[in-house]
Amino acid sequence: MKRALCCLLLTVCLASALPARAALLSPESVYGLGEMKPRDSALRVKVGDMAPDFALPALGGATIRLSDYRGKKNVVLSFVPAAFTPVCSDQWPGYNLARPLFEKRDTVLLGITTDNLPSLHAWTLQMGGVWFPVLSDFWPHGRVAGAYGVLRGDGMAERALVVIDRKGVIRSIDVNDINRRPELGELIRRLDALR
């Protein structure tokens, strides 16, 4: 009985430690990771490189190939650590609101995590859907994140934004503190710089 009481109280404490900004999103489905090592990988690409091509399965059944956008659109790769975690669960819904900003800059946004498709399906559904393709880098696990050098030691991707121009050249790389949401204005300024 005492043990059960302790477990219950501990659970309440841990649950309440989730960042408040995600608390209303869906408290029962957001998993707090606590404060993590801000960055746990080393880049394998640099600005000016051709972006490593990839083909990944997307929600909805399509396979998205990066090189399909070459000569047509700028691309932003938004790597995030994991589905159902607090910061990721508001970063992408925010990009829903920013859709016109991407489209005005002739830019495609591709969201990538190392989660599998069923998890991504459930998560994006819970968030109310997102307008951009959501890609699963689950298997071979984290191969694309690894190619860019944003795969962490725990198998999750970093919270990284990679801007790629129409020629397929990497124009900026921002590996953000995994615990913090990147500021939108900075990304839009990077897209403006492509003009």
């Binding site: 005492k2 009481l5 302790c6 109280l9 404490c13 309440s16 430690a17 608390a23």
Partner: peptide, 20 residues
């Protein structure tokens, strides 16, 4: 054990009230 439970209860109340 009772002391631990009481401490956890206080922690829980404080944590929850901090977000209210």
């Amino acid at each position: 054990m009772k002391r631990l439970a009481a401490s956890l209860a206080i922690l829980a109340i404080l944590a929850l009230s901090a977000r209210a």
